[in-house]
Design a protein around this nucleic acid. Structure first.
Lengths: 214, 214, 214, 214
DNA sequence: CATGAATGAGTTTTCATTCAT
DNA sequence: CATGAATGAAAACTCATTCAT
């Protein structure tokens, strides 16, 4: 289903996309992958089309068969990144009904998404709309889509009215989105622990209750 | 004293710097200001020397009287940004001895610094060392200087040994550093409130105590 | 008979051309039509193969089944344009024997040809041989064929020897060929009137006679 | 005064243009000259920036110090071309008050302008607004400016009301503007003769009078 | 006949940087 | 200190053309 999404994105600009996918060499996913990791590592402007071409064994010109501009490539990566976060979060939350457990699972899924080897989700966090003025509004919209998930999750918490859930949500997002700056896979910390640790104080803040243990 | 710092920075890279600083029109501060705000808004690579020249009514060539490379300009802004955060934080903490109060005051000062109209401190948060490989080590060092402040403040808290202070610190930094993304001066929220709100759960997390009220 | 010409042109450059033309969907005329109108409106270089492909619902590759190069496409349009002018002019002149009437009918036919919705003839006027060096000699030859018609028509006028018939012919061509720049079908002017108006002064110039009426 | 115009055009994009012109190497006029002749000979699209750079011993980048886009270069040439025609025509007509003599002198001046070695005016005739969609409206406006001159000249003729002066004007423009296609300096024909020959029939057409002799 | 994909050489344009004056 | 002008390397992008299927 991930593949489906990739193909559909790619098909957007190619209305005649063959139904017979086997005939296609389909460098598009590879291109998108490369773009995602370079954008996440170096940022948008420091990544050149030539570099992406080399990394995917294409010619620069070939890239423009798939995408009209470099900005459009970022948009595609961004969209895919948001989609991946949302998919993960939605999937993680699916079976669970208890609001706090839902949130906890969502936080874990979000962390997994943005710390995943595949860099799509990290791009969404790393590259701010302001970095690329030509598409900043698109990027903002895409960003908005994933933030909504957390708004919804917070709305379910049914908190005492004197607590500022908005602020809590923004703190949580900030703390989560900062993890790519310091988190190292080999650092011995597991994500589940981080997720729990992240929510404990929030719960305390919002409900006035300290969970036992940490 | 700010001026002193600016001038000294400027002098560092310019052996030709006139000894008689008073005679100069000294566009350097204006240049640095411009650079700070552009870097903070658009990032390093999306900001061009020409743009800065236009913004400061200089010619591109004139900029190179003050600074040897664009990267050096970022370094200067970065250094100034770190210095400003540290000045604020140190100043805020100065009279206070109670560790949690010190931390709370530091948080407020930090927020004030990065949300200030002058964008220096925001640059430090926005631009990651990896963005500009040529100077990444300098940037890392500068960044380190301000992170140390918080390490020190946390070290003073004398926590129960089973609490993960590192994690808490990283969460705090993340939550704080995300504020420029969402905070609007006119949003009705005052920074003091945000700072308090930010620390309450942390204290809960680290000490197992819920502050009464918020 | 037009079709015959098209098909023959098309066959010329395509040894693979199926002998059974009826089985083919034959996008060639549509392609040629599109090319004619784009070339007439935007010129040769501003018209891209991709643009033509889009306009005719073909792929760029498919165009190259019909034609070996973009230049050859222009040659084909040009040839067709010249043919169309000549057909019209010859047809118009056919029954008439009086030289001035012949010329008048030729002028009208020429105007009809170059102002026709189908842009073939307009291409011949718009695009000068020098514009496309690779085929300039072919274009010159084709152009020559239609200019000859007018040379012949002028030769029949049997003018006083002190009149400069060449100059008159060139003026006439110029005036006619400028019409696409300003003529609008809905402008209320009919071509017959324009043709008459165009010849009256010429006749005056060449014969020293003013036609009555205008 | 020509120089003044060139310099002013050039200054437009360079508000700080030094008042002391001697210090400037001022490649701008040479660039404009080159552009004019190439555009006139090969058309806009067939002329490359590199080619212009080579012809003027500049680097491609240096061209962009003077002009923001290739299109803007054409606009500048076009504007200069129109200006030159107008200057010539106005200059030629200046002392004369008799309407038909004014027109005759204007025609001669116009022919001189578009057949001049310097290709500026020829560009205006050769390159149609439709060739360069991005600036077609600017080009149309500039074209309009020089056509107005002839409208004014025709308005002064005080013709019988049953004559179509508009048509006559358009014929005249067409005949004149076609001359670059066939006129060769060494062809033995002098422009004065052409101008006279051009007007004689027009006068006949418009006034019903045949000039004696030619 | 056609297509999706690609090529490769070329195009315009950008931009940090330099330099004579 | 500053400027107008330029450089040069590299960037994004274009486009006629090709080719396996």
């Amino acid at each position: 289903m991930l593949n489906n999404r990739l193909v559909s994105l790619w098909a957007k600009g190619n209305t005649l996309a063959a139904t017979n996918a086997k005939r296609q060499s389909n460098r598009w996913p590879a291109l998108l992958d490369s773009a995602a990791s370079r954008f996440a590592e170096q940022g948008f402007h420091a990544t050149t089309i030539r570099e992406l071409a080399t990394a995917t064994a294409m010619t620069p010109g070939a890239i423009y068969f798939h995408v009209a501009t470099k900005q459009a490539l970022l948009t595609a990566v961004y969209a895919e990144g948001v989609e991946r976060i949302i998919d993960r979060v939605d999937g993680a939350v699916a079976g669970e009904t208890r609001p706090w457990r839902r949130l906890e699972k969502a936080v874990l899924a979000h962390l997994e998404a943005i710390l995943d080897k595949s860099a799509y989700a990290r791009v969404v966090i790393r590259i701010l709309p302001g970095d690329v003025p030509e598409i900043s509004s698109e990027l903002k919209m895409l960003r908005g889509r994933y933030e909504e998930r957390f708004k919804a999750l917070f709305a379910d918490l049914s908190l005492p009215p004197d607590r500022d859930a908005d602020l809590a949500r923004l703190f949580l997002l900030g703390a989560m989105n900062w993890t790519p700056v310091w988190y190292r896979e080999d650092g011995g910390r597991d994500l589940k622990g981080i997720a729990r640790e992240l929510l404990a104080p929030l719960r305390a803040m919002l409900c006035g209750i300290v969970e036992n243990g940490r």
